[in-house]
């Protein structure tokens, strides 16, 4: 991994189209501004991973859920 030291207000350029600006930093928190083309998706990594994890859990088999419906159908 490339490691660069930057001060507040300084910018890192990635390729032609992406710029990352250090807006402010205080203690262990850094505020970052990102400008990138519209088709580049930007997420907080832990949020993206959480969605991925939730999607995996959600796509698990739900046969028991469907049986619930079948039970209800029988009742009515």
């Amino acid at each position: 991994m490339l490691v660069l030291t930057r001060k507040n207000g300084e910018v890192i350029k990635i390729g032609e189209d992406i710029e990352i600006t250090v807006i402010a930093s205080k203690g262990d928190q850094v505020k970052i501004g990102i400008s990138a083309p519209k088709d580049i998706e930007i997420f907080r990594k832990e949020v993206y991973e959480q969605i991925m994890q939730e999607n995996r859990t959600a796509s698990a088999d739900i046969s028991t859920f469907l049986n619930l419906f079948k039970k209800n159908e029988k009742k009515s």
């Binding site: 939730e54 999607n55 959600a58």
Partner: peptide, 15 residues
């Protein structure tokens, strides 16, 4: 995310 029992089922409103 369907859970057993169904009452514990959750919705992903963030995505």
């Amino acid at each position: 995310t369907v859970q057993e029992p169904f009452e514990k089922t959750t919705a992903n409103l963030q995505a």
